[in-house]
Nucleic acid binder design. Sequence first.
DNA 1: TGCCCGATTAACT
DNA 2: GTTAATCGGGCAA
Length: 195
Amino acid sequence: MGKPLTLAFFSRSVLEVAPDLIGAILLVNGVGGRLVEVEAYRQTDPAAHSFRGPTPRNAVMFGPPGFTYVYRSYGIHWCLNFVCEPKGSASAVLIRAIEPTAGLSVMKRRRGMDDERLLCSGPGRLCEALAITHAQNGLALNAPPFKLLARDSPLEVVAGPRIGLTKAVDKPWRYGLKGSRFLSKPFAATATRVA
DNA sequence: TGCCCGATTAACT
DNA sequence: GTTAATCGGGCAA
């Protein structure tokens, strides 16, 4: 089993943290699985919520690393982010997909479906399965209800363009576990191998 | 104040 | 492939 992720882990560049999160275990009240897809967002990035400065919604992005940033997407879904880099950098990693491994029956009930491949394969789906809402915004990742453990063995990470954006579409800041069937979308065959 | 759009998803045709 | 559901931010008026 991997070691708990530390403040130092999240204090690095978001472009280093994001690929290193692939393969880590995320549990919320004991329910969750292995991270297989994430995206990086930085304050200088026109696609980031923090690009235009602090607002009540994105305030925790401007706080210290190692905390959650949860926001409502399209007025319907919730999306989970991990704040990275020193306080004020306003960078974060969007958690896009998980390979469900713990609490399968709980997640299936919350999602109202049985297909394990679709349980957590998307930012909105993952939050529904883990019961993430606005109530979890701004919480520390190294304390309950969260448990976050580093991957304990090397694996292949691929990178490609982020999904659902109209700005900065050229930035290859989406990272995934190569070959995973739990990705929200497959990576192009030409996707760069990262680690 | 009002209008448009988005780090989405599921249920349509 | 298209569309509705639905809410906060940005920008024009």
